[in-house]
């Protein structure tokens, strides 16, 4: 992965102009933006134990009794995706369809059983904001800690420290241990740290609903600004309304397979039908 963090606002000017609205892109169809995420023939296999063995004692008891049975199960199979720069892709699917598994593969935390995932550019995941904080650390210390987890450099965090504090609206609470924060405050800080970098790829897992109404407005505005700059977005949701509002493309996952992909409106309609059929 490249180290893009030192000068995050380094998009070539042309691309910034090219990406803003989907309507304009249609006209320029001859020159498609570069692919940033390519998923080829992706498959992830899990071994499920009928009863989870997680202690040595139990492991040996079962080994002796010869009861170490595993069930195999493909969470994703033969998934192919090409996502271009500036695309905002909604990933729809019922529970257990493989949405988060797919995101984990793209984020690089889960190694696929087969197939390849190629990602160009730095990814910032906005999943369960604040989950990586250390509760005994103050907000200020957590900015450095969480920032370092996201791969920011020390100089970069130092430079942007005030910007983060300001955006999070924490004020003097920044020097209070995070264990005393409300969940909204944690989410605000998490959002501020993660979005300070202007990532090239943003992974959203229904986080648009964090914080109070005021902060929600502010964060949506910030995300919209990022999208204008041409950031690629992966958005996981159960709700087709949210997908239509935020995305220009969508895919449907079902039992680990991509069953449909294309324009957001069309796919969302298909998804609604699918749900209606099942219920």
């Amino acid at each position: 992965m490249e180290d893009n963090n030192k000068n995050p606002v380094n998009f070539p000017d042309k691309e910034v102009l090219k990406a803003p609205a989907p309507k304009k892109k249609k006209k320029k169809k001859k020159k498609l933006p570069p692919k940033v995420i390519v998923v080829e023939n992706l498959g992830v296999r899990f071994r499920i134990q009928e009863q989870k063995v997680d202690s040595l004692k139990e492991y040996f008891v079962r080994l002796v009794k010869r009861k170490l049975n595993y069930k195999e199960f493909w969470a994703l199979r033969e998934v192919n995706l090409k996502i271009r720069k500036g695309d905002r892709v909604g990933i729809l699917g019922l529970n257990g369809a493989g949405k988060s598994t797919l995101l984990k593969c793209i984020a690089g935390v889960l190694k696929p059983t087969e197939g390849t995932v190629t990602v160009k550019g730095n990814i910032v995941p906005l999943l369960e904001l604040g989950a990586g904080f250390d509760k005994d650390y103050t907000g200020a210390e957590n900015i450095y800690f969480y920032g370092s987890m996201l791969g920011y450099s020390k100089a970069f965090i130092k430079e942007r420290f005030n910007e983060i504090v300001e955006f999070s609206e924490l004020g003097s609470f920044i020097n209070v241990p995070v264990k005393n924060y409300s969940s909204g405050m944690k989410a605000r800080l998490g959002f501020s740290i993660a979005t300070v970098v202007d990532p090239e790829i943003l992974i959203l897992d229904e986080v648009l609903s964090v914080g109070d109404a005021k902060f929600r407005k502010k964060s949506s505005k910030k995300l919209a600004k990022m999208m204008k700059k041409g950031v690629t977005v992966l958005f996981v949701s159960h709700s087709s309304e949210q997908v239509i509002a935020n995305c220009n493309k969508a895919i449907i996952l079902d039992h680990g397979h991509v069953i449909a992909s294309g324009k957001a409106e069309k796919i969302c309609a298909q998804y609604e039908e699918m749900i209606a059929d099942k219920s």
Partner: peptide
């Protein structure tokens, strides 16, 4: 490359352990 990129994280983790132990 990874080592370079996450060098800062490494020292942050070290610092956190020491700081929090006696906080």
């Amino acid at each position: 490359n990874n080592l370079k990129k996450f060098r800062f994280l490494f020292w942050e983790l070290v610092k956190k352990d020491i700081k929090l132990k006696y906080r």
